[in-house]
Design a protein around this nucleic acid. Structure first.
Length: 616
DNA sequence: GCAAGGTC
């Protein structure tokens, strides 16, 4: 009996081989440089000792496109919304196709070790199709699909012994997404480019993508809110009390009002009292929570905030560290560690470090220092949270960004295995006339995780003097003050990533690319202002979004807001759950875009005029 | 020459 195993990436092929073979495998080069073949023996329940070959692909190996006669310029762009599409081998992946066909020749079963997520299921189907080219006896019923979410030995063994079927509903969902993205992307890109070139407004390609435009929309939206912001004045009562040679400011429980006279009236009422009274003093334990286990999105947000790296730079650096075998797979949505993972042995390897070794040792040896990591709400069932895999001395990492990211991943991991920081918060409540005011002080007593997670600060404030309940106090100052509302800040990379994540625009693996793409297209630009890096729309980007909003589409849809993409996501879920068919979902979605396309083409003079308003 | 999704 012969079984051909295929993993989504070379690293998984290697790891799974080492588990299943118990370290006894033979490596053969394949036609594809990075995708080696491994031969070994393994006992599958009900099939006895089998000859196994393990190989790999590198992600998707086919892509969807239009036939050559639908190339740019040969048909009106609108035709692409219902032109035929074909799935074909990626030109750059032909060696991989050949290798799989070759290795499948004598196989009785095909075992698909791709990631257990939506795209992984589709890649599995692509692998089956490639294998059939070399072995026509293979079909869906000869596919074994192990379900695994990490590479721990017993987990992999049990996945290998209990394979499921390939889930064709999931595959259909992916094909639906591919078709929508291709049809909509290609048709609108050609239309926009044609319109704007004809009007001599733009030379370059003006691309439209179901993820690109909502991303650009977020940036434009924020920019407009900042620009159109009008500050508003407000008034409040400000008081302070002197005690033990210390001046304590109290803030008004009602914060502020936009009506000056009203505040003055309340103030004058207070002024009838010559003194204030401390109504109560509370001292409560408080905590500063350690971070959740690390996901891709969180890594990118933090690298933007702490190191001013772009999402792409952070992911690229993490990818290199992963390829070196120093950190785990960097594309994950999971923020909970699998219960069987041996966290302590990872901590142990870091006790030798000159920077955090002492801290790691304390987690291992001091009672109460180690804390079970928090469990987040997300689990992609494919990859564990990002964590260090191998100890590396920081001095040996020559690339500046990689060094920062490695140190961050380690410190984040150690922080996850720590206890929360602890302290006490004291709140004093002051009554003056009919009004209440509060002052608070924080005393940090145990820094715990903050000792290793040095990116965050949480420190004691000046302590309150010893107020006691019922105490009469004289006000040192009491006056009505004026303030004004401040504008929202410009968009940062951190916030943009968070918005995309929350709105389902892109995936952990692609969010960085979408931002990069619209920067390449000159729709947005990044600017350094003082300490922070902000993202602004360009005239081109502004023009595009505003031009689209000048057209009112049927059903109130918007081509630059996240709702259509979200809708597609929920349709995909319905396909996966068998509540909708691929054909139905495609028809629904494409017909929405068809209407929008027709209207855009019809109203192109409106579009061009609106676009012009934003060009200098 | 267009998309978004994998991954090197």
């Amino acid at each position: 009996m012969k079984v051909l195993c295929v993993a989504e990436k070379p690293s998984i092929a290697k790891e799974v081989t080492s588990v299943l073979s118990g370290g006894r495998s033979t490596r053969r080069d394949s036609r594809s440089k990075y995708n080696a073949n491994f031969d070994f023996k393994f006992t599958f329940p009900g099939h006895g000792l089998c000859d196994v070959t393990m190989t790999s692909v590198t992600g998707h190996i086919t892509s969807m496109d239009f036939p050559a006669e639908y190339a740019w310029g040969r048909v009106p762009p609108g035709r692409l919304l219902d032109a035929p599409v074909k799935i074909q081998p990626d030109k750059s992946k032909l060696a991989i196709h050949q290798n799989i066909a070759n290795e499948a020749r004598s196989a009785n079963y095909l075992m698909i070790w791709t990631d257990c997520d939506r795209e992984g299921e589709a890649i599995g189907y692509e692998i089956l199709e490639a294998a059939k080219k070399g072995n026509t006896r293979l079909s869906l019923s000869s596919v074994w699909r192990p379900h695994f979410s990490h590479l721990e030995k017993n987990h992999i063994l049990s996945a290998a012994r209990n394979p499921q079927n390939l889930n064709m509903k999931t595959v259909e969902a992916v094909h639906c997404r591919q078709e929508v993205d291709l049809r909509v992307g290609a048709s609108f890109t050609r239309l926009l480019t044609d319109i704007l070139r004809r009007s001599k407004l733009v030379d370059e390609i003006v691309s439209y993508g179901t993820c690109q435009f909502p991303t650009l929309g977020f940036v434009v939206d924020r920019y407009k809110r900042v620009k159109n912001f009008v500050p508003e004045k407000f008034w409040y009562i400000s008081t302070s009390v002197e005690k033990s040679n210390q001046t304590v400011s109290f803030s008004w429980a009602k914060t502020h009002f936009f009506d000056r006279l009203f505040v003055v009236m309340l103030y004058e009422e207070c002024m009838k009292s010559t003194h204030g009274t401390i109504k109560g003093v509370t001292r409560k334990p408080t905590s500063n929570f350690k971070p959740f286990p690390l996901t891709t999105v969180s890594l990118q947000k933090d690298c933007a905030t702490y190191f001013k790296m772009s999402a792409k730079e952070a992911l690229d650096a993490a990818e290199k560290l992963y390829q070196s075998g120093w950190i785990s797979y960097p594309r994950t949505e999971t923020d909970m560690f699998p219960p069987e993972m041996d966290l302590r042995s990872i901590i142990q390897t870091h006790t030798q470090d000159s920077r955090w070794g002492h801290y790691a040792t304390s987690l291992m040896t001091v009672d109460g220092k180690y804390g079970i990591p928090r469990k987040g709400r997300n689990n992609d069932k494919s990859h564990p949270p990002i964590h260090p895999v191998k100890y590396v001395n920081l001095e040996t990492i020559t690339n500046d960004k990689q060094r920062k990211v490695y140190e961050y991943v380690v410190r984040r991991f150690l922080a996850c295995c720590s206890t929360d920081a602890k302290g006490f918060q004291t709140v004093a409540e002051l009554q003056w006339g009919n009004e209440t005011f509060r002052a608070s002080g924080l005393e940090v007593t145990e820094k715990n995780y903050l000792d290793v997670y040095t990116y965050r600060t949480w420190s004691s404030t000046e302590q309150l003097p010893p107020f006691v309940a019922g105490e009469r106090v004289n006000l040192k100052s009491a006056e009505v003050k004026e303030g004004k509302t401040s504008p929202p800040n410009h968009m940062t990379e951190t916030e943009l990533i968070a918005l995309m994540d929350a709105n389902g625009i892109g995936t952990d693996a692609t969010i960085a690319e979408h931002i990069h793409k619209i920067e390449q297209r000159s729709y947005i630009t990044k600017k350094k202002t003082g300490k922070s890096h902000i993202i602004l729309p360009t005239e081109l980007g502004m023009g595009l979004i505003e031009a689209f909003s000048s057209i009112s589409f049927a059903n109130n849809i918007s081509l630059s807001k996240p709702f259509l993409r979200k809708r597609l996501e929920s349709l995909l879920k319905e396909i996966e759950e068998g509540r909708a068919t691929k054909e139905f979902s495609l028809r629904e979605t494409i017909s929405l875009y068809k209407n929008a396309f027709a209207l855009t083409a019809e109203e192109q003079s409106v579009l061009v005029n609106e676009f012009k308003k934003f060009q200098t």
